[in-house]
């Protein structure tokens, strides 16, 4: 489904990812954990084509994302190719990034109408369903600035689902929320995880959520995978000292 092949990402002199290899199977829920600066968010941003790889290839559903085929060879992807591949990918951002110039409903219908070519009615109906799913049916005509952070994030989730993505990227979706609003959003995501088979890549500091939702947890540190396995193992019985100290720090923090 998603396949990283020797992916290197540098920002100037800083090497964030050092020849990364991993695969994610269809329908799998993978949580990326690790200290900040370990490259987790960069991985999501690479898949969403918000950043370009320095070296290596990213494959999505057997198609190269960072590159395109030219005969036998792979050449750097152009914008048109990336646009084609990334229609299958959705992303929910830490800062929601709702469009403040559009009401909630139009935030959700905009891309289906203009990118997927759905009819207005079709997109409208679907958006209403999604708003009901995220529990905000009454907010369809509100502007994002009139919603709380948690509500905005739920709209953002609905917006990404409206594109019927095969892959959903969740980038620290609760980090910008007030503590009392976090649970609503996480519960919603758990529902979605249970009721669909969307492949999910999740970056989060909510360890309980990670444990409940993921099939697999990958622990990163300084751009390499330290540990990779089911949550019960990585989080319950970590092999590596670095994983242990990270978990201790995060769990200590969330209790304090």
């Amino acid at each position: 489904m998603v396949h990283f092949e020797n992916v290197v990402k540098r920002f100037g002199d800083l090497e964030v990812l050092q020849g990364l290899n991993f695969q994610v199977q269809p329908g799998e829920r993978v949580t990326l954990i690790g200290p900040s600066g370990s490259g987790k968010t960069t991985i999501l941003r690479l898949i969403m084509t918000l950043e370009q790889v320095t070296d290596g290839v990213i494959w999505v559903e057997g198609e190269p994302l960072s590159h395109m085929r030219k005969g036998e060879r792979l050449v750097a992807a152009n914008e048109a190719h990336q646009r084609q591949v990334r229609k299958k990918i959705g992303m929910v951002f830490q800062q929601f990034n709702l469009f403040p110039n559009m009401r909630v409903l139009r935030n959700i219908t905009e891309a289906p109408v203009h990118v997927l070519g759905q009819s207005k009615e079709q997109a409208h109906t679907r958006a209403k369903e999604l708003l009901e799913l995220v529990g905000l049916s009454d907010k369809a005509d509100a502007y994002p600035s009139q919603l709380s952070g948690g509500q905005q994030q739920r709209v953002a989730i609905a917006r990404s689902l409206a594109m019927s993505p095969d892959i959903l990227l969740l980038d620290e979706v609760t980090s910008a929320l007030d503590p009392e609003l976090v649970a609503d959003v996480l519960d919603l995501l758990k529902d979605i995880a249970q009721s669909t088979d969307i492949t999910m890549l999740i970056v989060t500091h909510e360890m309980g959520f990670a444990r409940d939702v993921s099939d697999r947890v990958m622990m990163f540190d300084r751009g390499v995978i330290v540990e990779d396995g089911p949550p019960s193992q990585v989080m319950g019985d970590p092999e590596h000292e670095r994983t242990r100290s990270f978990l201790k720090a995060v769990l200590g923090e969330s209790q304090g």
Binding site: M48, M91, N97, F99, E110, A111, H114, R159
Partner: peptide
């Protein structure tokens, strides 16, 4: 972040600008 959201929704340049 707004531009990134446009990318995530696969807008073209003109869609991004106009919408």
């Amino acid at each position: 972040g707004q531009l990134e959201a446009c990318t995530a929704l696969s807008f073209t340049y003109w869609q991004k600008m106009r919408l």
